[in-house]
Design a protein around this nucleic acid. Structure first.
Lengths: 155, 155
DNA sequence: TACTTTGACTATCTTTGACTTTCAAATATT
DNA sequence: AATATTTGAAAGTCAAAGATAGTCAAAGTA
């Protein structure tokens, strides 16, 4: 029975529901202790159940006072951002990126200035790499920025 | 329980806010006594929380009557952007990038949302590369975004 | 086969303490 | 009186130990 991961998943989701701002902080080792499992089990659950695609944003910090912070992003399936996120996939050219950013601007999801910042970030001049690698990294950056917009929206 | 560094950080920042000219002098040993910690803890806090990236300038003097003087740097936006540009150089870590972005936000050069977008762009999760290459590309991205802010301003 | 669990190893952040350097005031020397 | 030396009071440095979290691959399970 692979109940462990499921149990941890529900536990975290329940905790999340009891928060005001959709944000929860945990101590990895505490949680692992609570479930009597390896600490890395927590990472497994986070990466399989709380990924950005599933609508969660995870930050963390190591060392004394370290933590893992989980934020729920409200995603609605026919949301423009969500669609765009899918369209990007795992590789994208500069010009397509710019088209997407332009579109976001037209739809007034982002301001002019935000658009300029985002375009600057995906410019190929920054990414001094073979084209294939460059397009992958660009996709990551663009998706990260858009995920961030989704997060902002739900706050 | 790594509240110590955070506590010392807030304490100093609160003290700074109560000064007229953004400058504060402390006695290292006194402060260490106050927090019941090793004096070198103060140095740790200074170097991690009051770095040049975060917009602070720290001077000190040893010997009898020694002191540590902490100054919050305040310069006009144009200089700030140029200075930051220089500080970035051609390679920078994620955490230093975040410090810089945080500072831009504090100085109200960028909005909260713009800050989040910029942080998303420099996150290491996007840059699946060896550290050295990653830090170079991050520097490019960050500088490109900042250059974009300068352009915006002059328009 | 695909998903889950574990554990060894790594990376990062914090705290502490032993040792070093610098400075100003007091004291000694010329 | 002027200069040199000593002393004690700061602050600085650095490496080790402690506290977390991350990664990855091997082993287990459905």
């Amino acid at each position: 029975m692979s109940k462990l991961s499921n149990a941890i998943e529900s536990f975290i989701k329940k905790m999340l529901q009891n928060t005001e701002n959709q944000t929860l902080e945990i101590r990895r080792n505490e949680l692992a202790d609570y479930f009597s499992c390896a600490p890395s089990q927590i990472n497994y659950v986070l990466s399989t159940r709380f990924s950005i695609h599933k609508g969660y944003y995870v930050e963390s910090r190591r060392g004394g006072g370290g933590y893992i912070r989980i934020t729920k992003i409200s995603i609605d399936e026919d949301d423009l951002l969500h669609t765009i996120f899918r369209i990007i996939g795992n590789s994208i050219s500069q010009s397509k990126s710019e088209d997407i950013i332009e579109r976001l601007r037209e739809e007034e999801v982002i301001s002019d200035r935000e658009g300029e910042i985002m375009k600057a970030a995906v410019n190929k001049k920054n990414l001094n790499l073979p084209v294939a690698a460059r397009d992958k990294i660009r996709a990551n950056i663009l998706k990260a920025m858009i995920a961030c917009l989704m997060r902002q929206k739900s706050e």
